[in-house]
Nucleic acid binder design. Structure first.
Length: 565
RNA sequence: UGUCCUGUGGUGUAAUUGGCAACACGUCUGAUUCUGGAUCAGAAGAGUUUAGGUUCGAGACCUAACAGGACAACCA
């Protein structure tokens, strides 16, 4: 974990939420207790924006010896499903967090109902028969005050009667709602008699057909927080304008008052974060599923090969504040490279094979010692078979090299990693001018990779022995969107116009050293000089599939780019 | 023509409460290296949206502008 930055007194700096929490602790607010919650609606898969919130809420609880609940905000049965509940539980766990209590807003339906009755009894809620269109017209606009509903002055008895019958299923969907009686002329739209309950004759994934009226978010969320004894209710900025209503319910009901605090949601360059649109990408098959490795979902990122540690570190690095932000995708990539550099075993694979024949090498096989991870001594070493015919990367040979090219070219000598120095003597082209084979000579004295005469070579390239190679499939991913902000598209267009048509490239028949013949799903490797790769769940016995998590930093690519100019 | 929120290097976050702006990513040098990786050393890059004001002193406090964002689902 990265160190926090420190201030002049060498104390770690706090984000604005930690500052609030520490002040509250000092003032013995809530008995100096800290209790947060992560409250997803089970209507989709979690994405990396949620990961920020998860790290924040669970992190706060951990830092201040408090608790953090997992609470499903399941107040809309038409959109929610157990499939999502399960995936959310899995994702939070995978990220490395254990919740103190697992709750559902639906656990509180009875209590919420009783409080609604209470509100009616004190004249703070009423049943309204306005149609949706009418209600919208009565509500006014942000700049124009609303008008009071003609049903606003119903008697308490009539309201109780109607609301009870709403619950009993006597009315069809949409025919009536229960509204709070607040202030139709408030400049805050949410205070213009917001809806508390609506009629939905749909089975709920937990309560079945017990209810046909369901509470709205504003009515359910704060009270759920209150019931659970939440002290700091942290949410994203778009709920800022809801806070007066959040406080109004708590105050009117005279129950425990959590403090709602809003922070700016995460945005990442070239990445789409809207749940609704991600669902669209899945439904319309632009991606293979929620866990497509190009998706910013937690399960997608996991399948891509990101580690929980790298994500937690990312959440730490991006900080928490209230201003709109766009995090450079390069920071995310930095986090996974940093983590995998320390952990991932090195291995040699050739993605785009070019056959190399070492003419003066005997027809035998020998085993070369290769270090498993230069960053981790305890990782040990392994044997890699070497023979007369090997594959190298097509990019590692150039017929007419530029002066800064250090790899194999006619007459040039390079090192085969952990093996020998080889020198290119000749090469063969087919009728299309494509190079099909390179012939080299090797220096037997350079075994292991160093020449006793102290001769230096500039380039070291990776290789795989042809007769020992195992075929693997490799999936290379590029960003899903070409646009810095995928949501920014010309008029009449769609965010889908920003989709990158080349975001997935599948390469078959890549050559790997034998070690990779059968490795565990989700395990990560560094393919030397190429990048970090992770075993995909589509792997079958004898046919491994690897996802490229992220490439290695490539300073050669930069030089190449410069030379093009 | 309402209410609320936010403006600090390219990006993000700091500056403990008023003492001449720090850290990370990115970028660029150079060293080193059996990964053009990693590592190490260094550099460039903001005078804090603007204008006033308070003060010996303002990124921070006050006022006013300007800019961006949120709010008008029986979604969350």
């Amino acid at each position: 974990m990265q160190e926090n930055t420190t201030n002049v007194n060498n104390k770690p700096t706090l984000n604005f939420i930690e500052e609030i929490v520490e002040t509250d602790i000092q003032n013995s607010k809530n008995g100096s207790r800290v209790h947060t919650r992560f409250p997803p609606e089970p209507n989709g898969y979690l994405h990396i924006g949620h990961a920020k919130s998860i790290c924040l809420n669970f992190g706060l609880a951990k830092k201040y010896n408090g608790k953090c609940n997992l609470r499903f905000d399941d107040t809309n049965p038409t959109k929610e499903d157990v499939e999502y509940v399960d995936s959310i539980r899995e994702d939070v766990k995978w990220l490395g967090f254990n919740w103190d209590g697992e709750y559902y807003a639906s656990d509180y339906f009875e209590q919420l109902y009783e409080w609604a009755i209470q509100l009616i009894k004190i004249g703070k809620a009423y049943v309204c028969d306005l149609t949706q269109e009418q209600m919208s017209a009565y509500r006014g606009t942000p700049t124009k005050p609303g008008t009071e509903s003609p049903y606003r002055s119903r008697s308490i008895d009539e309201n109780i009667d109607l609301f009870t019958r709403m619950r009993n299923g006597e009315f069809p969907d949409g025919s009536r709602v229960l509204r709070a009686k607040v202030d139709m002329s408030s400049p805050i739209m949410h205070m213009r008699d917001p809806i508390l309950y609506r009629i939905i004759h749909t089975d709920h994934h937990r309560t079945g057909n017990k209810w046909c009226i369901y509470p709205m978010y504003d009515y359910a969320h704060g009270q759920s927080d209150s019931i659970e004894g939440i002290t700091h209710s942290i949410c994203t900025l778009e709920f800022e304008v809801h806070r007066p209503l959040y406080d109004w319910f708590i105050k009117t009901l005279e129950i425990h008052a959590p403090q709602q605090i809003e922070f700016a949601r995460l945005n990442i360059s070239y990445t789409l974060m809207s749940k609704r649109k991600l669902l669209e990408l899945v439904n319309e098959k632009y991606v293979s599923g929620w866990d497509d490795p190009r998706m910013p979902t937690i399960c997608g990122i996991r399948r891509r090969g990101y580690t929980p540690e790298s994500l937690r570190n990312f959440a730490e690095l991006i900080g928490v504040a209230k201003r709109d932000n766009v995090i450079d995708i390069a920071l995310l990539e930095h986090c996974i490279r940093e983590d995998l550099n320390k952990k991932a075993m090195r291995v040699m694979t050739v993605l785009n094979p070019l056959k190399v024949v070492i003419d003066n090498y005997p027809d035998t096989t020998e085993e070369m010692d290769a270090i498993n991870n230069p960053e981790d001594e305890t990782a040990g070493s392994r044997k890699v078979p070497f023979s007369k015919v090997i594959y190298i990367e097509r990019d590692d040979f150039m017929e007419e090299p530029s002066k800064k090219y250090f790899r194999l070219s006619p007459g040039n000598e390079v090192r085969l990693r952990y093996a020998y120095f080889i020198k290119c003597e000749s090469f063969v082209k087919d009728e299309n001018g494509e190079i099909t084979e390179v012939h080299c000579s090797y220096d037997p004295a350079s075994r292991g990779g160093n020449s006793p005469d102290g001769r230096k070579v500039k380039g070291t390239i990776h290789w795989v022995s042809a007769q020992h190679a195992v075929d693997i499939e490799v999936r290379l991913f590029e960003r899903l969107f070409n646009a810095y902000d995928p949501e920014n598209y010309p008029e009449g267009g769609s965010y889908k116009d920003n989709l990158n048509p080349d975001s997935l490239k599948v390469i078959n028949n890549c050559k790997a050293e034998p070690y990779l013949k059968n490795v565990a799903v989700l395990s990560s490797y560094q393919f030397e000089r190429l990048g970090y790769f992770c075993v995909d769940q589509d792997s079958k016995d004898g046919k491994m599939v690897f996802n490229r998590t992220v490439s290695l930093k490539d300073s050669w690519a930069k030089i190449e780019k410069k030379e093009e100019k």
